[in-house]
Amino acid sequence: MFTLNAQYTKKDLYRILKVPTEKQRGNWNTGYNRYNDNFYLFCNIDVPGRTGHDYNNRWEGNNLVWYGKGRSTTSQKTIKDLISNNFNVYIFTRKNSDNPFTFEGKGIALNYKESSSPVEITWSLRMELHNRPETIPEEIPVEDKILWEGNSQKIRVNKYERNPQARKDCVEHYGYLCQVCKFDFKKEYGEIGREFIHVHHLTPISGIKKGYIIDPIKDLRPVCPNCHAIIHKRNPCFTIAEVLLLLNNATGF
């Protein structure tokens, strides 16, 4: 019914779904709507919606963290149905309130916060394979968590804030080629590899431990996951030049 990563306006949805004029607008313009036993969820990321509300909707890897309407709670029937995973939930996002929405796929509710209002739900996109390298294990959004492994070992994981716009500016400048090995995911893997690349902080933000102003051209570089892993194999990290030398001359170190 919808094409992954294609853009749609609300008028496009009305036409595709054959929504009668009297059932258009209304809930379609408030973030989520149920129509013919399917849900349609519209998410603004890093920008307020046209109603003026600005929630911390964000990607965490391939998962979408999403907030409902201002007074929404998990006790409401609509929210209960959303998180039941008994209905199709078609998810659309945009980063500019003047642009159409991008279809991200069908969502599965992975988890939600029981006591939050507005409700917070983490969605997994199940329709197709997604590749969102904006968030990688070394640098992910802010929060301290304690994770338990088995029954006895406690592991503390620090999370650090990242700026998606900085990533975007970096790859617009350098392109999607690895700056070490020149690997091109689109060339090697086809369409699924389009615009896939990691972005490396030359000075890891996990080591700075405070807010700072990023220069996307001076401070960031696109690298493939393999080279990125090698960069972080040493503490302090290898430089881009050092990993390039390792690649070109295996006996140089």
Rank of each mutant, 00 (worst) to 15 (best):
104 E>I: 00
86 N>Q: 15
110 L>E: 09
102 T>E: 14
3 T>L: 08
156 R>Y: 12
29 N>P: 05
178 C>F: 01
211 G>N: 03
39 F>E: 01
87 F>Q: 11
229 A>E: 02
240 I>S: 02
179 Q>N: 09
203 T>F: 02
181 C>K: 04
217 I>L: 03
2 F>Y: 05
179 Q>P: 03
184 D>E: 04
44 N>A: 12
87 F>H: 14
223 V>D: 04
155 I>D: 05
30 T>S: 13
166 A>W: 00
253 F>M: 12
185 F>T: 09
210 K>R: 15
178 C>L: 01
243 V>N: 01
233 K>L: 09
209 K>C: 04
161 E>W: 03
99 N>E: 15
91 I>T: 03
119 V>W: 04
80 K>I: 11
247 L>E: 12
146 I>Q: 13
120 E>H: 02
176 Y>I: 00
218 K>D: 02
75 S>L: 12
247 L>S: 08
12 D>Q: 05
105 G>M: 03
109 A>W: 03
184 D>V: 04
179 Q>L: 07
72 S>Q: 08
62 N>M: 07
18 K>C: 07
153 Q>H: 12
218 K>Y: 07
134 E>Y: 14
50 R>Q: 11
52 G>F: 03
98 D>C: 08
162 R>A: 10
220 L>P: 12
87 F>E: 12
104 E>S: 05
61 G>H: 00
149 E>F: 13
77 K>Q: 15
76 Q>Y: 13
142 V>C: 12
137 P>N: 08
133 P>M: 14
116 S>V: 07
221 R>V: 04
159 K>Y: 11
60 E>N: 05
6 A>C: 04
93 T>F: 07
202 L>T: 15
168 K>A: 09
180 V>G: 00
129 L>C: 10
2 F>M: 06
74 T>Q: 05
181 C>A: 00
178 C>W: 07
66 W>C: 06
70 G>E: 14
20 P>H: 09
177 L>G: 03
112 Y>S: 10
169 D>H: 10
195 E>P: 08
102 T>L: 11
251 T>R: 13
105 G>D: 03
68 G>F: 00
197 I>K: 03
49 G>M: 09
117 S>F: 01
209 K>W: 07
226 N>E: 07
3 T>Y: 05
138 E>S: 14
19 V>R: 04
93 T>S: 09
133 P>Y: 15
190 G>P: 00
227 C>A: 02
238 F>R: 06
62 N>C: 08
74 T>M: 08
195 E>Q: 14
218 K>R: 04
44 N>P: 07
158 N>I: 05
84 S>G: 06
118 P>R: 04
93 T>P: 00
159 K>D: 07
170 C>L: 04
11 K>I: 08
209 K>Y: 05
48 P>E: 11
206 S>A: 11
172 E>K: 11
38 N>L: 05
8 Y>M: 06
78 T>Q: 07
